[in-house]
Structure formats: C-alpha cells, structure tokens
Design a protein around this nucleic acid. Structure first.
Lengths: 194, 194, 194, 194
DNA sequence: GATGAATGAGTTTTCATTCAT
DNA sequence: GATGAATGAAAACTCATTCAT
C-alpha cells in the first residue's frame, strides 16, 4: 500500500525539520526529498507552517492512539496502568525517533497553532497525573513528589529517541522492562498486601 | 563592571538562538539586540557558526566549573557526591535556563566543531557514571540498571530549564531537595548500616 | 527569432565581465542589463562562476567551429591552410571582440573549471603547430623559430579585438589580407618552385 | 637596502591585483600581504584607486627608463634601434611579468586617471612607429604594413609575460635573440648594400 | 493535478573607508 | 605614525511563495 502524496510530503518534511531545524529547513529540499516539484508540494500544503502543524498534530495523535490502545488492555490497577503507559511511551519513542524529536520544533509554531498544540499535549501530562494520583490514593505509590516523579518519567522516556538504536546492545524489550522498572521506582511503588 | 563587547554579543546570540533556533536566527537581529551594527559584530566573531561554538563552549565550561566547585566540597561518600552533583546540575539548569536550552542547538554545529563539543560533554556522562559505579561497589546504590538510572537523572535535570520559573510555586531550594531525593530513589540508595 | 533567456543572460554577463572584470562585475548589474530580477537569473544559472564557465565555453566552441568550417574549405597545402586559419581567427576577433576579450578572465575560473577550459584551448595551439610543422617538413616555411612564430601569430590576432573597429579606416577584408600576409612573413614562407 | 613602506605596499598590491583582478582584490588582503594594518596602509595611500594608479605609473616609468637606456646605446641605424628596443621590451616582460600583467587592469582606472595613463602609454606606440618609419625611409624595412607590423611586434612581446619562465628551456638570451629576429622579419628587414 | 518561471524580501558575509585614541 | 573599532553599502545567493499555463 503506497503512502499517499500527503503522507510522503509530511514524512519528508519531518525528517528535514528534525535534521535542520524548522527555520533552516527549506521547502526546496523537502520537495526534492520526496521527488516532487515545489509547486506540487504547494498543491497539497499551503505553506511551511502548515507542514509543521500537520506533522506535530500527526505526532501527538499517533502517540495518544498508542497510549489508548495500551491502556485499553489494562485493568483498573494504577501500577498496571502506569506500566502499560510507560511501555507504550517507550515503544513509541524507540520506534518513532523522528516523530519524537520533532517535538522540540514546537517553538516554531505560530502563536495560534501553538495554543491548540499545547492543548493537545496537555493530555499526556494529564494521563500520567491521573494514574499517579490514583496510585497515591490507593496507597501503592508512596512518593512524596508525585509531580516531579511524573516529570522525571516523561523526561527519561523522551530522551530515548536521542540515544537508543534498534541495532544497539539493548533490545526494545530490554528497554521497556528497564524503563517500566525505573518508573515504578520513581513513584516508589509498594505493592499492597494481598 | 560592564560586560565586554564579546560577552554582550554571545549573550544576545544565545537568546536569539534559543528563541528562534540557530537556523532561523538572524545575525541582523542579534546585532540589533545588542545595539551594534552587523559589521561591528563581525569585527568580534568571524561568523554565525563561531557564535554558536563560543556559546556552547562557554555553557559547558560554566557547567563543569559549577560541578567541580560542588564536588570539591564533598567527601568520598558516593551518596554525598551524587547529591552535590545533582544539586549543582539542578541549580545550573534553574539559574541558567538559556544556557541550558541552547544545548539542543548542538545539531547545528559543523562536524568539526561538533566533534570537539561532544568530547567536552562526554565528561558530564562520565562524572555521573563514576559516582554511580562507586556507589554500586560500595553497596549503597542497588539499582539493577545503573546506566539507565544515570540517563534518567540527567534527563530529568535537563528538563528543569523548560518549566521551572523562579517566581513559580517552587523555590530553588525545594527544587534541589526534590531532585536530589529523586536521584537517590533512581539509584535505589540504601544507606549502609552504621 | 528571439534569443533564449539563457542566451540573453550570458550575453549580458559577457559584456559586464569584459567591462568590469569578473571580480568587480555584479550579478545585480547583469540581471538589470537583461531586464530581469536577480532571482530569475539564478533560476537559469546557479552562480557567478557558472556564468563565466558557460561564457568561456561558448567562446571557444564558436571559435573552433569557425576554424573547422574554414579549414574544411582548404586543401592540404600548408600555406593555404595557414592562410584560412589566420583569416578565420582574424574574422572571429574582429566580429566578436567581446567574446575575444573575455578570454583574459580565464584567471578567474576556479581550478576545476580552469583545467577543463585549458584542455579545450590547447587545441588552438595545436592547430597552428600542426600546420606550421607541415610547412616546415614541406620546406615551404623556413623560419628557424616555429614555436615563437606561432605564438606571435596568435598574439597579434588576439590583439585585434582591442583596437579594430568596423567603422574605422580598415575594412574587415583589409585586415584579413594584412594579417595573412604578416603570418606568412613570420613563418618565412617561400613558395615551392612549381 | 630595505624597500620603503610605500614600495612594499605597491608591490603587495600589484601582486594582489594581478592574481585577483582589481575589482576582486581586497585592501585587507593587501595589508596582510605586507604585514601591516589596514589603517597603516591608508596612512600611505588614500585609497584603492590610488594604489592602482601608482602601480601603473611605476610600471610605464620603469619600462620607458629601460627603453631609454637601451636606445642611448644605439646609433642612428633604424635596424639597430629596433633591435635594442625589442630587446629592452623582451627583457622587461621577462624580468617583470607582474609589472607587465598588471597592464590589463587599465580598464579599472577611473576616467581621469585613465586619460593621463593613456597619454603616457602612447609613447610606446610612438617609439616603435618612429623607428619603423625611419627604416622605411632608409629603405631597410620593406613591409607594406608598417602599422600592423608594429602592433604585431608589441603584441608578441607583451605575451611573453604569460608563458616564459626563467627556469624553462629558453634562456633570457635565447628569448631576446628570437624576438629580435622575429621583429626584423615582421618589418621585412633588408640590409642596405654595404 | 502539476510544472517551470518569476519575484521581492531575506540571508550571511565582505567591502573600502573613517575616526578616536 | 600607527591601531582597533566601527560603519553603511554592497556583495552573492536563498527563501517561501505565486501564477500563468
């Protein structure tokens, strides 16, 4: 199944943006990268900023889809929910390093687009917050600093895109196992007596 | 004591680079920001790339100075050393958010400059590695994943520059206390019996 | 038949280069000269150096075409061949003074382009060398200094572009007659007894 | 005897102008070439154009000095006078290739300077003209085209600077001998009966 | 749907020159 | 006599974007 023209374009643009930064990336190069004329590209997207918006939107959407699918498999137990959410995040960062790295280009969104984008990404914060809060209430997470633990979990997962390589010494499964363990450590998980 | 012309320039350039990204930043704007003609700027720095290099170099230097001063106050105990190193890192990120954020522009260094920069930054990794290794040997750090714990510590500290504000609800002291605690949690610190 | 855009450009550039010298010539002025924006010019030629290369290439090509057509009309007799070659050269210098004068800008070719250009122009030397050598062998040219005579012939023909004007006292035909005579004098032509 | 500051400057400028062309040559590079600051250079010469003027003036002066010295050694015989003048010209071109090549930068003189320069160089034409005219009157030069022969002689001598090298196969003496012979051939020298 | 031509504002950088010290 | 700092204009070139076809 060939990707659509639109998809080809945003794939090429994403790579270009990540490699050069939004400001330094050139529409010319993006068009060349997907073997089409600049005018053809403009037929699908009205401008550079729209490309960035489309790319970022696609990124968060894909990430939240993955999170939802993962959480759907989990029961109500906060520890289990945190585990699958971290696992989904780790897998996403590992499998889509470019989609993950593009996030720093958020600063290049025009104010209007930035506002709507921030609204979307706030959900990520919220997802983790809710689970950690539930764990605290249930008494299984015992950290005194839930907010900072949450930030640490997100930060360490985000960093994966920068160093992990599929052909490196760590398999994706190793990675998931470790980061899930670290996340539970951070929230100071103490399993309830059965 | 007025800052030197060179210092004024790199301060202005750093802000511009962080706000716009290296590629989108314009020498014109940097010159304007420090009230100087473009040609005057070129009198001090031979090009845009040299500005970036100077800024990044200054950043790592300042960070390592802070680390050294901090470690000099600590004894040989790995836990203590980790605490002061994390504290120094947190303080640096909090007090110098711009110097901290510029690090992502590393990708815009030309290969030659990138290589020498990477060589410098590797020391940060090493500092943490050595302390954590010492703690493991001493039996006070018990994590099964020392490398990943290290990465998590660095990542969570780096993220501070993006959200913490001095006029926010958290004082710098709160911040240090929490991140030191989280770091010790991550390495699974178990104090030796007295 | 209107000249193509590309032709307009290199015609304008040639004039500019000859008048100002390559280094002092400005792309802005070249664009203005052919009533076109600078960016339009860049649409056809990727840079200043490419303009120079294209101009010089066109020049040698046109000259060698003229030489070939001329030599095709001559029999095997060295004196006759020298006459038509000199005549062709004189006519070319007289009719295309700008194409002729641009040759001094050879020094502004970048090394790579210079090498390939030199390879082309070497043919001019060779053409004269072969004919003079043939005349010596046949005993009709009796100069003791064939190489220097060749250089003198080429130099005197090249100089024509600098002083001859179509509306001056000398017609093109006069010019040809004289320079052919001088060339035969230089090689010390002594017709074989019939 | 160390060269004066002024001399150092125009020597450096001459080389720069010949290598780059007047338009592309930079005052900065000229200053560097003679190890002095730009401001120091401006202390001696008020501008770039003045450098060019000084260089060209020095060139013609040196050439005419050489011609005068040479002609002073010759008697009234036109053939002898032509010989020493050609010899002086050849030697000058061979010994001062840079001073010779700079002549093409004449086009970069501002109108005022150009006019006075042209007035000077006209003497070269005149010198040859007078001698050839005398030879024709005396019946020892028999060319039908004295003006064109003169131009050819000057052109072939001028070209020497472009190809002759002191360490090449031809000694300076060989060179003189040959060009004197070619010059006499061009004017069709026929020695008067004893 | 797609293209090549065109543009005007922008980029980084270099220039010749001036001037206070 | 000499210098480092500073400048405004101009250089070559690239940009995102538009439009007629």
């Amino acid at each position: 199944m060939r990707p659509t023209r639109q998809q080809e374009i945003i794939d090429a643009a994403r790579e270009e943006f990540v490699e050069q930064g939004y400001g330094a990336a050139s529409i010319r190069d993006i068009a060349q990268r997907c073997g089409m004329s600049m005018s053809a590209l403009y037929h699908y997207y009205p401008g550079k900023q729209d490309l960035l918006k489309a790319i970022l939107d696609e990124g968060v959407e894909a990430y939240f889809d993955a999170c939802e699918r993962a959480l759907a498999t989990a029961g109500p137990d906060p520890a289990e929910r945190l585990q699958v959410l971290v696992a989904a995040t780790v897998v996403f960062r590992a499998d889509h390093p470019v989609k993950s790295s593009i996030m720093t280009e958020e600063r290049s969104l025009e104010p209007e687009n930035l506002a709507s984008y921030r609204k979307q990404t706030a959900r990520a914060t919220q997802q983790f917050q809710e689970i950690i809060a539930a764990g605290l209430v249930a008494g299984v997470f015992t950290t005194r600093y839930p907010e900072d633990a949450r930030r640490a979990i997100i930060a360490m997962c985000n960093a994966i895109a920068q160093w992990w390589r599929p052909d490196g010494p760590l398999t994706r499964e190793d990675l998931v196992e470790r980061y899930v363990a670290l996340a539970l450590t951070l929230v100071e998980y103490r399993p309830a007596d059965r």
